[in-house]
Write a protein that binds this DNA or RNA. Structure first.
Length: 294
DNA sequence: CCGTACTCCTGGCAGC
DNA sequence: TGCTGCCAGGAGTACG
């Protein structure tokens, strides 16, 4: 599934293929894809028509395309299975095509005579979607004001994050997934960063020393940057792919999905625990549970 | 403030 | 073989 690095790859693809283009037509093919747009699909399409996209921005797993001179943005979230594809206009519809956005012919099209491209939102499980929102003064869509900066944001405040961790009476994995503390960390990267940090997911955040929380944050960044390095090499094509099947997930995971397989550090079989309606993967030897939890 | 449970959805897969 | 049911996941919401 798309995580922060994949979403960043998509953002770069949009920057290259969609920035500066003017919308001529919008087709909403499934109502769930615009369910975060309260006025509905027809309103979404009507308000988008004739507007020009500026450079795509991202925070955590949210990305948005500001509409020039309107103070509004198209906000997107890929959910679990969403893709934003730039496709030739004459390419066959994908099975799970939800939204199609057509553009005025670009200069390069009219010069080369090539078939134009369109932007498609494709989503099998329909957890993701697009919607239109006003921007706050700092350029953020108003509905994501509660989303904290992500660890790849140059303005992410490490010291403030570490202080907030100590103050929260919660456990470390819960904190990593709390979008108001730090955004963009999903189940996979949380487990990977905890494994690298030799921390059990149920460790109370208040017991983390400064060096330990700094190390954890460093591992969160490392694991995301490693994935970005892999995924970031494949966007340079007409087809902006966000299928979550990047080689990174096949080759480089140390924790996620490795139940009963040997720990890459000590060889102990990895374990999986049901946790908050999902799973946590960890090494029972490297990542000892805290005394308070059984 | 914090935690838990629930919801949305589809397709792949295990088990009968 | 064809059914049933489980599972995957992010994020919002309701509630204790």
């Amino acid at each position: 599934m798309p995580e922060l690095p994949e979403v960043e790859v998509v953002r770069r693809g949009l920057e290259r293929w969609v920035a500066g283009r003017t919308v001529t037509e919008v087709e909403v093919l499934h109502p769930r894809a615009v369910r975060r747009h309260p006025a509905g699909g027809a309103d979404f399409a009507a308000r988008l028509k004739g507007q020009r996209f500026e450079v795509a921005r991202r925070r955590g797993k949210y990305l948005w395309l500001p509409l020039a001179e309107t103070g509004t943005s198209v906000l997107g979230h890929l959910g679990m299975s969403g893709q934003l594809l730039v496709q030739p206009e004459d390419a066959a519809d994908e099975k799970h095509l939800r939204i199609r956005i057509r553009f005025a012919a670009s200069d390069s099209d009219s010069v080369t005579g090539a078939v134009g491209t369109e932007l498609r939102f494709v989503d099998q499980r329909t957890f993701g979607g697009l919607s239109l929102h006003d921007q706050t003064p700092d350029g953020l869509p108003d509905v994501i004001g509660h989303i904290a900066r992500d660890p790849l944001d140059p303005e992410f405040d490490d010291a403030a994050f570490q202080s907030a961790l100590r103050l929260r009476r919660t456990t470390v994995k819960r904190a990593l997934l709390d979008q108001s503390l730090i955004s963009g960390v999903g189940n996979i990267y949380a487990d990977e960063a905890l494994w690298r940090s030799r921390l059990h997911y149920d460790r109370p955040t208040a017991t983390l020393t400064r060096p330990r929380s700094a190390e954890l944050l460093g591992h969160v960044r490392d694991v995301m940057n490693a994935a970005l390095d892999v995924g970031g090499t494949s966007f340079d094509s007409l087809y902006v792919n966000v299928n979550g099947e990047s080689g990174y997930f096949d080759r480089s995971l140390d924790a996620y999905g490795r139940e009963d397989e040997p720990c890459h550090r000590c060889g102990t079989p990895m374990r999986r625990r049901a946790w908050m309606n999902r799973s946590s993967y960890f090494c029972p030897r490297c990542q000892r549970p805290p005394r308070a939890s059984a």
